[in-house]
């Protein structure tokens, strides 16, 4: 057989490729499959959080803010524990980012709160003197797109088996179930309930009025998303 291969360079090349590819596959695939499993404490996004994630992407927050804390002392002092690949299991796509014009936001929910985000999104310089981040006043007027968020939830559940409606282990040993609504109107209702909790901590009158009237301004969804980043 080796004599035959030596006389047929094309099939020899195919054989070399198959051998090296096999070695690569058994080294890379199991490790990759293991590392991309959700780590304990990671849970799928709720409808409102996902709508907020869409706002985040729509406004290109990821162009200036990364979501990837590297394992260096200087980073973990500032942003919290270094990121693990399993923490992005439900991010489609992940928002690691390649450039930090602003700080990393992977665990921003641990050290910033709703009312701070509200002040900061309206006028960043009012809380961070010298900040070069622009204000995002339209987030207080535009409505969040709950329909698209719900459609994405359905898609990732059916196509990628994202574990909605399944008890998931948390770091403190408890179990948390993220509910996926059966119908769009249920999803809108649950998003509104969640939005009310966020809006209760906000000071902007127009936002509170909008939520009371059953609307969800983009800022509420965005804050719900950022508070979920832990």
């Amino acid at each position: 057989m080796f004599h035959w291969l030596e006389k047929h360079p094309f099939f020899f090349a195919v054989g070399v490729f198959v051998t090296i590819a096999f070695a690569g596959l058994i080294e890379i695939v199991p490790n990759f499959a293991q590392a991309s499993q959700p780590v304990i404490g990671t849970k799928p996004y709720t409808t409102l959080q996902l709508a907020g994630r869409h706002v985040y992407i729509k406004n290109s927050c990821n162009a200036c803010h990364s979501q990837l804390i590297r394992p260096f002392k200087a980073e973990t002092d500032r942003y919290g524990d270094y990121s693990l690949s399993g923490e992005y299991a439900f991010d489609r796509p992940f928002l690691w980012g390649s450039k930090r014009t602003g700080p990393d936001l992977h665990r921003v929910g641990n050290y910033r709160t709703t009312d701070w985000h509200e002040n900061h999104m309206k006028d960043p310089v009012s809380v961070v003197p010298g900040s070069i981040m622009p204000g995002y006043p339209w987030l207080f007027e535009n409505e969040a797109d709950v329909e698209t968020a719900y459609a994405e939830q359905l898609t990732v559940k059916n196509v990628f088996s994202v574990p909605y409606n399944t008890p998931l282990p948390m770091k403190d040993g408890s179990k948390v179930t993220v509910v996926l609504a059966d119908t769009l109107s249920d999803a809108q209702a649950s998003a509104l309930e969640e939005a009310k909790l966020v809006a209760a901590d906000m000071k902007d009158k127009s936002v509170q009025d909008a939520v009371a009237a059953g609307k969800i301004p983009e800022i509420v969804a965005l804050i719900a998303y950022m508070n979920s980043l832990k």
Binding site: N110, Y111, R112, T113, W116, D201
Partner: peptide, 10 residues
């Protein structure tokens, strides 16, 4: 009354 302050466990 002002708002929420996060914990600074780090």
């Amino acid at each position: 009354s002002i708002g929420t302050m996060p914990a600074f466990s780090r």
